[in-house]
């Protein structure tokens, strides 16, 4: 996959960052407006596809660190589990902050809604990591087809390769 023209890369430089800001907004407001962790995470993950299309595969490969996205997934999942269980044994993701912090908004950005808004953030991290990895792996498959390796080039689990 080759880089596109300077017009596309310039536009990408400008707008790709807005996707992250918009995604973060959708994640943070998922509890009282349409959206949430999954939707916002998916919007943030489009950042990577913008980069891939605009700058081409070579630079994309140089930027991407799979471990970072794997860590984001792990962090998001664990945070999701912990926030979900904060209310245990009373309630599960309902009113545990209300019990411990009183019925106040968590911040100006996150009004009171139990642990749901925190779980949105956790899901957001998870989805950013997972969908970014999906894009990375899909690009890997395209590379296999481009280089003529086809499906035969797919690495199996019959050896310790990672």
């Amino acid at each position: 996959m080759r880089p596109l023209s300077v017009i596309v890369t310039s536009v990408c430089d400008l707008f790709a960052w807005f996707m992250i800001v918009f995604g973060a907004y959708v994640i943070n407001n998922g509890h009282n407006t349409p959206g949430g962790g999954f939707q916002g995470g998916a919007i943030v993950a489009t950042f990577l596809s913008f980069m891939l299309v605009a700058y081409g595969g070579k630079r994309f490969r140089a930027w991407v660190r799979e471990g970072v996205y794997g860590f984001l997934e792990f962090l998001g999942l664990m945070a999701f589990f912990i926030f979900g269980c904060l209310g245990f044994p009373n309630s599960f993701f309902y009113n545990s902050p209300a019990i411990s912090w009183g019925q106040k908004p968590l911040s100006e950005w996150i009004p009171y809604c139990g642990t749901i808004s925190l779980m949105n953030v956790a899901v957001g991290f998870e989805v950013i990591g997972a969908l970014s990895l999906v894009i990375v792996y899909m690009y890997g498959s395209i590379q296999m087809i481009d280089t003529g390796a086809g499906m035969g080039g797919e690495r199996g689990h019959d050896r310790y390769d990672r």
Partner: peptide
Amino acid sequence: MNWHDHLPAFLVMIPLLGAFLTPFA
């Protein structure tokens, strides 16, 4: 608190935590 009351929650929580903790473990 009687932990026995929470068995239905543990039933799903334990394998789910296992799935999330696997990369770390």
